[in-house]
Amino acid sequence: MENNSLEKSITLEKRPSKASPMNAALTFAWRALLRIRYVPEQLFDVTVFPIIFLLMFTYLFGGAISGSTGEYLDFVLPGILVMTVAMITMYTGLDLNKDIEKGVFDRFRSLPIWQPSVLVGALLVDVVRYSLAATIMVTLGYILGFRAEAGFSGIVLAVLVILFFAFSLSWVWTMLGIVVRSEKALMAISMMLLFPLTFLSSVFVDPTTMPNWLQYFVDINPITFVVDASRGLIHGYDVSSELMIITYISVGLIAVFGTLTMYFFRNKN
């Protein structure tokens, strides 16, 4: 070991001043992007998944539900968009859980940084991933014959609403990612919550075809509101009341689960 360079590197006179919260969050985001570069397969969930979902559901159910796949595509694409993005929000929690399990989380928590930046940085990159998934689905949809009646701006608005909701929903998984001890258990819990949430909604079919008791659940399911709002924005009808409710739900999710996440983050044993 070259002791001279070692000692020189240790006697560092100037210590940097604390990183700003924004810089710390962006640095965590940079790390997440680097990880994607090393393991591009982790983008399967936002690239291959949406393609498979869209093709599968359009051609499997299209004829039976709407009489033609073309008509069904117009109906189901906004729904699958919401479902796919909602499903991939859970990876935020899984990544966090892995950091904790491996021990690197300890280093982050012992650094003099704005503590929530660990999570905010990861969520920022997730928003990029969600956008990627949305872009791929809409592009594929157009190739298959999907047309948005409200045009491109309608799609952009719908995607923004979905991103906002997904960001809020992510805090549920960050909380679980910190609290739940193993990755497998976390996966099981996430699936258990996400499957009913996405399937028992207006993603695939018109809820009026369902039995009353199920309709009751579907009508209060947050995913239903997001799906209905996206459909409205894409096909050009008024969804201001849905948008209002989504705002309440999202703000509520961030307030409750963001707070809980930070509580468990600080008091992790």
Binding site: K18, A19, T27, R107, L111
Partner: peptide, 11 residues
């Protein structure tokens, strides 16, 4: 990358 990452985090 790890060292740069930590360096950025500490300011």
């Amino acid at each position: 990358e790890n060292l740069i990452f930590i360096g950025r985090l500490v300011g």
